[in-house]
């Protein structure tokens, strides 16, 4: 009997050994590369920084987490969470009809066109997209020009005059940040909703109609609950991606920091790795809470 044959026999007699052999490399990979890095990050957040030399003091302390609650830092967290929530809601509202059309009506070639249309923006560089949005939204950009041509400048200016959402131009306003976030993350919302809608049998919608439900009732009591897992899956993408992004708020918006940007600046610019790590823990905690809530809502039951 050859060596290979013997090994094969041993593995056949001991299926558990085979399982261990197969699962060890990916488990090590996940354990060391992913969890190890995460743990190292978590550990950093319990250190603090020497405020003059910028070197890290390796003593266990909760001081860095206390810093998170300072008004300026707490603002950053609140700002990011509100933005992520708004982006998620807007993405869901925009994505649902698109996904519905794709799942119900698009056939054959149109389906291909639809997939291409959704995926195409994902193929170009993220930075290129964001910089083009900077030009589109700029004070002397194409959108302002369009409003001017339509004699609607008053409308744009009126909107930009609203505190909290407005600014000197769309490109430097929170609205601009919002628009670009929605644009960039929309595909991640459309695709899961579409997948969920395709699994809803058409007969159920028809049955609801036969039993006298209005279209609104059908949507509320049949379609939405059945498609909810898709919406929640999409919202996990858009919400967590917005929570962590640090490029868009740097280029579009008011310069006010977001969590990702704060992590980037405290780590890369100020060398304050403990505070950056503490900031990085925030989205993890928020996402943990969100997933827990989603599970309680039964979002994962259909998976």
């Amino acid at each position: 009997m050859t060596a290979a044959g013997r090994i094969s026999d041993i593995l056949w007699r001991n299926p558990r050994l085979l399982l261990v052999l197969l699962i060890t490399p990916p488990a090590l990979w996940l354990g060391i590369i992913y969890l190890g890095a995460l743990f190292a990050l978590l550990a950093q957040s319990f250190f603090s920084i020497d405020e003059f030399s910028g070197l890290i003091r390796y003593e266990w302390t909760l001081k860095t987490y206390g810093d998170l609650l300072r008004p300026a830092n707490f603002d950053i967290i609140r700002r990011t969470v509100v933005m992520a929530a708004l982006v998620t809601v807007a993405s869901a509202i925009i994505a649902f009809p698109i996904a519905y059309f794709a799942a119900r009506y698009a056939r054959g070639r149109w389906k291909a066109v639809f997939y291409l249309g959704i995926m195409l923006p994902l193929w170009s560089s993220y930075l290129v997209k964001v910089y083009s949005w900077k030009l589109i939204l700029a004070k002397e950009g194409i959108l302002s020009w369009a409003f001017e041509t339509l004699h609607l400048t008053w409308l744009l200016e009126g909107y930009l005059a609203i505190p909290l959402v407005g600014g000197n131009s769309l490109s430097v306003s929170p609205t601009g940040t919002f628009i670009v976030f929605v644009y960039v993350w929309l595909p991640f919302m459309i695709l899961p909703i579409q997948a969920a809608l395709e699994r809803v049998p058409a007969s159920m919608v028809e049955a609801a109609g036969d039993l006298g439900a209005t279209p609104a009732q059908t949507f509320r009591t049949v379609l939405l609950p059945l498609a909810l897992p898709g919406v929640i899956a999409g919202s996990i993408f858009t919400f967590s991606l917005t929570l962590g992004d640090y490029i868009i708020p740097q280029i579009i918006g008011t310069s006010a920091r977001f969590i990702g940007l704060a992590v980037y600046q405290y780590q890369g610019t100020a060398g304050n790795i403990p505070l950056a790590a503490a900031f990085a823990i925030v989205p993890i905690v928020i996402m943990g809470l969100y997933l827990w809530w989603a599970k309680r809502q039964g979002a994962f039951d259909a998976l």
Binding site: F52, A72, N73, D75, R79, S255, A256, A262, A270, N272
Partner: peptide, 16 residues
């Protein structure tokens, strides 16, 4: 000291 300049300036830019 400088570290307060850092955190306060982030606060000012954030509207504080």
């Amino acid at each position: 000291p400088y570290y307060r300049w850092v955190s306060d300036y982030i606060g000012v830019i954030g509207g504080r």
